[in-house]
């Protein structure tokens, strides 16, 4: 329990009660996905090839069990949901549970991560990870952008040197191949 100062105008915690009356679309989606995953497991388990020489229990039994547990837990959750039980957003020191989700920030973060996936091999770790770090920090509200990028470059150059030189982990250097200390 802690007292935390929030910016003026933040909504009071009573929104949780208000949310209770709304249709829990998000949670219904989760339950449906869970049930779907269970059904998928049950159907797919049926297609797993069983070697004829197999012992009493083959590779299908456990997947069947897992599929059944998935479906059962989805049913249990649906019943709880219809009875008015709602999942609480997990709290935390850095999380403001009073408002809704900030999709723009999540989108920017996803874009930053996608950039890393696409660029890490052509441009190498130092450049790609710096863009990712800088982008992620900016998405989370770091200003000005050039300072976030500066921190990113310093950190990722250091990470690259420590991991490739000291720890012997492979990371691509990209066009920086051959630069002293990096390639």
């Amino acid at each position: 329990m802690s007292a935390v100062q929030v910016p003026p105008g933040a909504s009071p915690p009573s929104t949780a009660a208000a949310r209770r009356h709304r249709l829990p679309v998000g949670e219904l989606v989760v339950v449906v996905v869970l049930a779907g995953l269970g059904v998928f497991a049950l159907v797919e388990a049926h297609t797993i090839a069983v070697p004829t020489s197999s012992n009493a229990v083959g590779p299908r039994a456990f997947p069947y069990a897992v599929g059944a547990v998935l479906v059962l837990s989805a049913v249990g959750l649906l019943v709880a949901l219809l009875r008015g039980e709602r999942g609480e957003v997990e709290g935390g020191e850095d999380v403001d549970t009073s408002g809704g989700a900030d999709w723009a920030a999540v989108g920017k973060l996803t874009a930053a991560f996608a950039a890393l996936v696409v660029l890490v091999e052509p441009l190498g770790w130092p450049i790609a990870a710096s863009l990712m770090f800088g982008g992620a920090a900016w998405a989370l509200g770091a200003r000005p952008w050039w300072r976030a990028l500066l921190v990113a470059v310093v950190l990722n150059t250091a990470v690259h040197v420590v991991f490739t030189r000291v720890l012997g982990v492979y990371l691509p250097a990209g066009p920086l191949e051959g630069v002293v200390g990096l390639g």
Binding site: P7, T97, G99, L109, L140
Partner: peptide, 8 residues
């Protein structure tokens, strides 16, 4: 955290 960043 990105989706519900607390400030302060």
């Amino acid at each position: 955290v990105a989706s519900r960043l607390r400030r302060g």
